[in-house]
Design a protein around this nucleic acid. Sequence first.
DNA 1: GGACTATGGTTAGAGTTCTAACCATTAATT
DNA 2: AATTAATGGTTAGAACTCTAACCATAGTCC
Lengths: 174, 174
Amino acid sequence: MTVPVDGHLPPEVQALPLEISVYAQPENSIGYLLRMGFRGFSTMLERKTSTHGVSSGQWRFLRQLWIEDGPTQRELSVRVGMREPTTVVAVNSLVKSGLAVREPSVEDRRKVHIRLTPLGRSLQATLLPMVADVNDRATKGLTKAEIATLLRLLRHINGNMAQELEQIGGDAVP
Amino acid sequence: MTVPVDGHLPPEVQALPLEISVYAQPENSIGYLLRMGFRGFSTMLERKTSTHGVSSGQWRFLRQLWIEDGPTQRELSVRVGMREPTTVVAVNSLVKSGLAVREPSVEDRRKVHIRLTPLGRSLQATLLPMVADVNDRATKGLTKAEIATLLRLLRHINGNMAQELEQIGGDAVP
DNA sequence: GGACTATGGTTAGAGTTCTAACCATTAATT
DNA sequence: AATTAATGGTTAGAACTCTAACCATAGTCC
């Protein structure tokens, strides 16, 4: 097995400027670090919420419905940032689990409103503490100031990327 | 449609301590911010690499093979942090695209080594600048010091979560 | 040496998400 | 009013990822 030591890169990569070749190490890429972080977060949270029958796929939609109950399926898609087919299956799943219902609109027969059941609504008080707990564990050892900085920097790069994708792709983030 | 204004939360959620109820807003959760960031990053990068026929699924494995060529499939799984069935399909895909080959081990007939083709290896010089570009766009407007801080904080929370998941789950991050 | 156990890889089936194509309903235009 | 546009939702098919079950090979232990 060929294991190049740090800095032992093929000639055409060595020829690249240092600002580029640092990315040969994934740990130097923000994308990689975000991915690892997200996966860890998602896993930890799902382990907790699954005890109440809530999967990570349902979670994002449930959270949005707590903020705004009764949107159309299209509106829900936009708020959550997912494409419509994704919303279809997520809502199917919420309905199947008894957390939400589909309610056909009366003034426009194309539209369907998604509404929480009492069960779905009641879960907020149960599940929010779990998010808090996972956030706490993730930030253990950081000061409040550092956490605030992290939030600010993350929001900044997310803003940058939303802007890039909007002007270039002209479309939502898949 | 019911749109609760900020702070207009159901009684059982209002009853929660403030440290918990802040998470009613996704923008206050690190997990949400990581997820958005990762998705933006992944989308931007894939738009570029796909012009060379490299998908985001292949990307992570390719990057690891650039660091260490010829691992067994099991070793590759561990390095990349994916489960074995995931590696099977990823390697299938790399082989199909002519970027890597499966090479049965001679000393242990259970093992299979994964080795880059010249094409797969040559892509490093082409694709690394793309990662650099996406990182640059994502961090536009941040100082070098802020970027360094972001990397440090992300590595810190990733370390925390790896530790949590190791001791509690006893298993890899899905 | 033959029966357990461990290791490496694969297959089967599921969940989450996407794009593309489609159908139903409403709005706009001529 | 009839045709065309736009809007809301669904279905079909794919990519990526997982868990669980499985097969093949190698190592261990009586």
